[in-house]
Design a protein around this nucleic acid. Structure first.
Ligand code: SF4
Ligand code: SF4
Lengths: 168, 168
DNA sequence: TGTTATTCGGATATATATTGTCCGAATTAA
DNA sequence: TTAATTCGGACAATATATATCCGAATAACA
């Protein structure tokens, strides 16, 4: 039982995209370089975010990814589900129907206590993650970082997002 | 993110062992045959239960497994942890220390919001499973099964546990 | 309007974890 | 003491997660 590393990467990428200027995007390669992880694999996670409707992608020159909706409406569970899928972690194989004393199918209409106990536990897990949104994560970064670090990030974003050349 | 099938099998085996007469055991092969699953793999799960102190094993003729403590004191989480291990599902790789704007190690003393949010969610998952004990599971079986099914299981247990030959 | 540079998207390999199997060590009954 | 029996851990096959590559699509530019 382990959660893909892609979830961690996707979460970090999503937080980074909060700070993105309107109408601009960060390309997969930049996000990967920022966190020092393999480019193509980070790209894969971003594609998953895109399919899930969390991120929005633009192809071609000056393209990239940006959030598809307000950060308030994006929870850690949304990110997790986008990468890991919605399938329950506990897979019941109905072995109570097997063997010498196996139950008949009609006696198995509703799930047993084992299966439903795991369903409840997983729901508790999901609900806990749903209470944490991207803005909560960003808020903590702002609170704990030193000013010099924030300006570093700002400068990096500035250099990566290729703002419309404003040479006035 | 998926839970090993062994957890389901171990849970079923544990419930079965509740009904075991004092001083007797069920061998791995019998438990596997009862549920119609591969013998050697079921044996592996039972070994894990044994190492975790949930089950107790006896080798040699007429040996087998039995519960090592009262069913009241064994929760679904105990079973899950015995099979899957205690390692957290979310693995933080501290990528905030990587890349051009990476934080210094001394700024990473305490975990960030992402890592702690997952820790909280996993705790909720564990706590939920801890509230379900083996007796709860057994109770539901007794409640939902038809009398004929119960006697079937009783007979099967009788034939498998090799009670001391009482030919009086 | 064509051309080219750029970026995403899905198909393709590799590494790791899960699932399944085997045989030797230990114990017990005879 | 012996032989049958059963557990225990080492070994192999399969599925999943990780990492990579190249073609399709888009946008800037000439
Ligand atoms: S008894 Fe419960 S856990 Fe076991 S196979 Fe049936 S539904 Fe699944
Ligand atoms: S920021 Fe949080 S999740 Fe990301 S690497 Fe650091 S502790 Fe882990």
């Amino acid at each position: 039982m382990q959660i893909s590393k892609g979830v961690e990467w996707a979460a970090h990428a999503a937080v980074m995209m909060i700070a993105l200027p309107e109408g601009r995007g960060l390309k997969a390669e930049a996000l990967a370089r920022y966190h020092d992880v393999p480019t193509a694999y980070m790209a894969k996670q971003l594609q998953a975010l895109s399919k899930a409707g969390i991120a929005q992608s633009s192809r071609g020159a000056h393209g990239g990814y940006r959030l598809a909706k307000p950060a308030t409406g994006i929870s850690l569970w949304d990110i997790t589900a986008a990468i890991e899928g919605h399938a329950p972690a506990f897979r019941c194989t109905e072995i109570r129907q097997n063997g010498p004393c196996g139950l008949k199918r009609k006696d198995c209409r509703n799930p047993c206590q084992i299966a439903s106990a795991f369903a409840v536990a997983e729901r508790a897990f999901r609900d806990s993650l749903k209470t944490v949104t991207l803005v909560d994560l960003a808020a903590q970064v702002l609170q704990n970082a030193r000013p010099e670090q924030l300006s570093d990030v700002g400068n990096w974003l500035e250099s990566e997002t290729m703002p419309l050349s404003d040479t006035s």
